[in-house]
Design a protein around this nucleic acid. Structure first.
Length: 229
DNA sequence: CGCTTTTGACCTGCGC
DNA sequence: GCGCAGGTCAAAAGCG
């Protein structure tokens, strides 16, 4: 699945860019290199409150690799948001009714997780609706839909063809409800070179979390520009 | 009894 | 236009 996502592995530079280079099919928005200490409340922040997942967090006892974005986005803020860039986009990625067809790129996030279990507890309740053998992988791909009424979020789960120790999960769409017990929003990414990644804090809103995130990205960009002079 | 999983069929997009 | 591959539907079976 790594291949189908254009997914690089952990060997790729961490934190390659807050904003990927033009034409990049994916971006890493991941913790900086080094020993990263991550302490998150169990299942508190994964995909919760519309968008949230954390880099390197513990999720169902598994360790998450950096997230990957596969729709040719030019920045995280353009990914899965629309209009003024402040609202997440929900709903299925594509398809035209009975029988499917290929989804068009939409609000999609994929990431690898090293785990012995295929289905990680991300706080949401999922209902399996399909299973399919895919040519690019010896492992079957499972399709899940959020069980919440009116929530069209889907996810695909499969073992990484390159390394079966990893589970590749791809989310399509954004939840229009919070996961039971979820109380956290996305924190800003860690400062470049930071030794520790602060635990997420409760955020008043999606917009506030994005604002904080964006502000920090700008600070990083300014700092990077300054240091390269 | 209601919800979930399984599984084969069906539909659609894409490449050739 | 055709075949392939991926994604979804929906009926049947399983389970608590």
């Amino acid at each position: 699945m790594a291949a189908s996502l254009g997914l690089a592995h952990e060997a790729a530079p961490f934190y390659a860019a807050a904003y990927p280079p033009a034409g990049a099919a994916y971006a890493y928005l991941a913790p900086p290199p080094g020993d990263l200490v991550v302490e998150f409340p169990p299942r508190a922040a994964t995909m919760a409150d519309d968008c949230c997942y954390q880099f390197g967090q513990e999720m169902g006892g598994a360790y998450c690799s950096p997230p990957v974005f596969d729709n040719g986005m030019t920045s995280l803020l353009n990914y899965g948001v629309e209009g003024d860039g402040r609202r997440p986009v929900g709903g299925p990625a594509g398809g035209t009714g009975n029988g499917g067809g290929r989804p068009r790129p939409a609000s999609r996030i994929g990431f690898r997780t090293r785990s012995e279990v295929d289905v990680l507890d991300d706080g949401f309740k999922w209902r399996k609706y399909g299973k399919k053998a895919v040519k690019s992988s010896p492992n079957p791909r499972n399709y899940y839909r959020c069980s919440a009424e009116g929530c069209g979020v889907k996810k695909r789960v499969e073992r990484d063809s390159d390394d079966p120790r990893y589970v590749v999960t791809t989310y399509d769409g954004v939840h229009n409800h919070a996961a039971p017990g979820a109380a956290y929003l996305c924190p800003p990414p860690p400062p470049r070179g930071a030794a520790h990644y602060s635990p997420p804090v409760a955020a008043p809103s999606w917009s506030a979390a994005l604002d904080a995130w964006e502000a920090q990205l700008h600070r990083h960009a300014a700092a990077a520009a300054h240091s390269s002079e």
